[in-house]
Design a protein around this nucleic acid. Structure first.
Lengths: 230, 230
DNA sequence: TATATTGCTGACTGGTTAGTCATTAATGCC
DNA sequence: GGCATTAATGACTAACCAGTCAGCAATATA
């Protein structure tokens, strides 16, 4: 029995394999967790056999590291550039940063890395450390600069910026997590756009100095807006 | 060789075992994840052998269910009573509910259930469904009543209460998760009290109607306050 | 076409662990 | 004390899976 032309079982695609494997691994790690993910399944989803996986990654743990390392660093760097170049109010910068986050992380599979790192931090302290320093702390600094700018210009009240930033970021992380954990439990799904709009609205109003003009969120983070449910 | 009097290896304590086992299991599940937790380790931490574990739970999955089921229902019920009995402003009710959450969940090992359910929802859709309906939805309803009360009395602006509640709860969940995932990465730990104070402050100010009196958070949720860091 | 190179495969193995069960010892009852 | 009951033990097994490797087939080179 000869193989049909479309049987790509033996296709040689050295360049494409690593990215396909890490993409498949990310999906399965997020879906099932690190331990519960079988490398046979990762390989199958990437369209190769397990042996091939081991041509590109020396162990399951190395595959995990690659997934985390390669995912978010470019995004962080883009955010840092965006922050440096920004001229305008702190509120607008925060809106842009959140919009940027949504477009390049929140609505992509990369959002799953948050859930993955939360789940596995206990088993991989070294990777958790890397993620903490190179993703969380840098992302935090990004928002921190915006919040301080607002406080110094008199746009925001003076609160501890560290807590303010954590409270700014927490709903974004929760949105990422929700998508991969409980969204499917609910028939009427969470609308991310409206959720982000409300967050920006409440947060910026909560932070703004007495007498400043009320913040309106809808004007920036409103891509593909759908009708409000109920 | 006779066993010393203090050798409790064969102690018969039928009543206490199940709670000790679920407590040990919660700790390990949260620390390592469900798959990566060995039942031998659970049994050892509870001071028994693996065979004993199987006297009380018919499988690893049943143990997991017991951990989730028994943990949070009493707390939810207490919150529901507290909400019904409350007289006073919506802001005060929200402060009390958060304080109550912190005392009976946030600062206890039960907080780990959030991380556990997030991590394992994909592998146990049935338990995820239970958790979603009996814990998340009921907790959500609790806060929802408070938020609506505030909107109807004119204390809060009129926003979609569903989103407002999600944004009220998100930082609490993140606080739970943080403790078990990244807190140990950072030398200068997150102070939960101040974090909650800031959240209540920003959120209530962000929600309050124009002309209402500014909300101050510090007067309710300030137990065991420590010096502000930096 | 012949040969060398190398990306890819899948059967195999060694270690690990959920779940079992024959045995042991604590307790209660006469 | 003697006997019956049952909580507790830990060695055992069957299954599962990360990681290996000898061979196969696509491609490159001559």
């Amino acid at each position: 029995m000869t193989l049909s032309r479309s049987d790509r079982r033996w296709a040689r695609r050295k360049e494409a394999r690593p990215a396909e494997l890490t993409a498949a691994a990310l999906e399965l790690f997020v879906e099932r967790g690190y331990s519960a993910t079988r490398l046979d399944d990762v390989a199958a989803r990437a369209g190769v056999s397990k042996g091939t996986l081991y041509l590109y990654f020396s162990s399951k743990e190395e595959l995990f590291k690659a997934v985390v390392r390669e995912g978010l660093l470019p995004v962080i760097e883009r955010g840092e550039r965006l922050s440096e170049e920004h001229t305008g109010s702190a509120g607008d910068l925060i809106r842009r940063l959140i919009r940027n986050w949504w477009e390049s992380v929140g609505r992509t599979p990369l959002a799953g890395i948050a859930k993955l790192m939360i789940s596995e931090s206990g088993n991989f302290p070294e990777i958790a450390q890397f993620y903490y320093q190179e993703v969380l702390t840098r992302g935090h600094r990004l928002m921190d600069a915006a919040v301080r700018r607002g406080m110094e210009s008199g746009e925001f009240r003076r609160l501890d910026p560290d807590f303010a930033v954590r409270l700014l970021v927490a709903p974004l992380v929760m949105l990422s997590i929700w998508r991969f954990s409980f969204d499917f439990c609910d028939s009427r799904r969470l609308d991310p756009q409206q959720y982000l709009d409300h967050h920006i609205d409440i947060f910026l109003n909560g932070l703004r100095a007495e007498g400043g003009k009320p913040a309106r969120a809808g004007n920036v983070v409103s891509i593909n807006r759908k009708g409000k449910n109920k």
